[in-house]
Amino acid sequence: MRKLIVSPAPHVHGNESTRKIMLDVIIALAPSMLVAVYFFGLSAIMLLAVSVAACVGLEYLIQKYMFKKQPTVSDLSAVVTGVLIALNLPPTAPWWIAVIGAVMAIGVIKMTFGGLGHNIFNPAIVARVFLLISFPVIMTDWTIPTSWFRPGVDAVTGATPLALINEGLAQGQTVEQILAQHDLSYGQMLFARVGGSAGEASALALIIGFIYLLVRRVIRPHIPVTIILTVAVMTGIFWLIDPTRYTDPLFNILTGGLLLGSIFMATDYVTSPMATKGMVIYGIGIGVITVLIRYFGAYPEGVSFAILIMNSIVPLLNKYIKPARFGKEVKHA
């Protein structure tokens, strides 16, 4: 008699896999990668390659020789981390910065906690913050994409719009004066003509990736939408109070990696809440902390810190914010 397979129900599977999800995230990041390569040319390609290779290689080595188990790099999660690290670096950053970022992200944050699924913090965010604090000069030496047709050849180095604003305000200028002085317009921010990390260069590319993730049902819109709405509402209030001291909402949304952070890093499965209500609280928290850091903190940019801080309370959110259950509780014996 042939041997039949026996197992408990269900007997079919929806064909989703970790690998497919990660591949979708990589595809969603493709527009941003292409924009980065287009503007910054070889240096962007080099950063992407080094960062991905370092992340994947490190994960492989640690799993194989320290954990002594079958490496799971084929799930592509390390590739996603690598791409995100590269997109968070200034395009002019030296290659070893990417390696240090990878060591921090994979070696320290992901693997010490037990690998994929166990890390408390988003590895790419930690890498970015770690590098920002450790190498402030390199990490804030942003390149302004000068031309659509001369990728990275004679790029002008400068500061990010948010840093320019912070500097200007410190010198007693008004927001309007600063914007005019540095020739900053929304069109430029949307289509990548402002200084910033490789991934922040084009808001449009990030939004295309966001739409792709939504269509493929990889992420749900709750976290990015609440972050952006919170930032818009909070900055809107400040801006209405004093437009000379505070930047307007649209400016805040389009700059400083808010889109990159909220779409690709705050939504990281492992470090974001499971229940819808928890997601909303998490999103609001990131938005509020971002605005507070931007307006009142020492750093011009707050998204990374905000995500990091909110990452740390995700276990609490998962514990106390439960999904809506079906049907009311009735008293029973």
Partner: peptide
Amino acid sequence: ESECIRCGK
């Protein structure tokens, strides 16, 4: 079976 990635699906 692989590790739970806490996707919440």
